[in-house]
Simulated assay, not measured.
Amino acid sequence: MTAQQAQQAVTVSVFTHRLPATRRGANLARRLAVGQLGDWGIGPAAPLCDTVALIVAELAANAVLHGRVPGRDFELRLTYEHESAHVCVEVSDTHPGRPEPSTSRAGDAFADGGRGLHLVAALAHRWGVSERNGPGKTVWAQTGPMRERR
């Protein structure tokens, strides 16, 4: 048996959807993600589903609140690696600004915001910001180690 024959096939599923950069679009992103996970066999009671739903909600809300460019949509992309049961969430918008976790409001328990990326960092195995084709950026988070990001 050769080394190439010994390698296992890796099944990866991908879901991509463009959404309006509105509060309704952010809410729809979370609902679509949960529905897609269900299609992949990850039910709404699964901890992975909860984690992905929270990450999508935070990243989509940031795209709508901080990354919105009038007349432009944002994009949700989910990549599910079946073998490891890990999901990569990517949210792309057309705003050039880079997100950074707030340091000033993170400790303020009564602040209305400023904790979203701290929540993403706590839930995800890792997260970051990447360049994208066209204007803007992609903010991504992985629920666990994946072999390779696109």
Rank of each mutant, 00 (worst) to 15 (best):
R105Q: 13
E83H: 12
A106W: 08
L28Q: 14
W40R: 09
T79W: 00
N27L: 12
A61G: 05
L123A: 03
G116K: 00
G113F: 00
L48W: 01
R132M: 08
A121S: 13
S13C: 09
C49N: 15
N62M: 00
A45R: 15
A121T: 08
Q36V: 10
L119W: 00
V56A: 05
R105T: 13
A3V: 11
E90G: 11
G116V: 00
R72D: 10
T11S: 08
L76S: 04
T79A: 14
I42S: 01
T138V: 15
H118R: 09
P101T: 09
V89F: 01
R18F: 07
L54E: 13
A29W: 05
A53I: 00
P20C: 02
A121C: 04
I42P: 02
W127Y: 14
L59P: 02
R105W: 14
F74L: 04
L32P: 03
W127R: 10
L28Y: 05
I42Y: 01
V69M: 04
E81R: 12
M1W: 03
R149E: 09
R132E: 09
E100N: 07
A122Y: 04
T51P: 00
C49Q: 08
A109F: 06
L32Y: 13
V52G: 01
L78M: 02
G113W: 05
T103L: 11
G134Y: 06
K137S: 15
V10R: 12
C49H: 11
L123Q: 06
P20T: 11
R77Y: 05
V87Q: 03
V129H: 10
E148Y: 07
A6W: 05
L78C: 02
H118N: 09
L65Q: 13
T94H: 14
G128T: 11
Y80P: 02
R150Y: 06
T79V: 15
E58V: 03
R31G: 05
A33N: 03
D50M: 06
S92Q: 11
E131T: 15
F15S: 09
V89W: 05
H86N: 15
A6K: 12
L65R: 14
R30M: 05
G113T: 08
E58T: 00
L37G: 10
R77W: 04
P20I: 00
T51V: 08
R23C: 01
L119P: 04
S92F: 04
V52R: 02
Q8M: 12
R72A: 13
G38Q: 14
E148A: 14
S92G: 09
G128K: 11
G144V: 06
V56C: 06
G67P: 02
E131W: 10
W140C: 06
T16F: 00
S104R: 15
R115G: 10
Q142W: 02
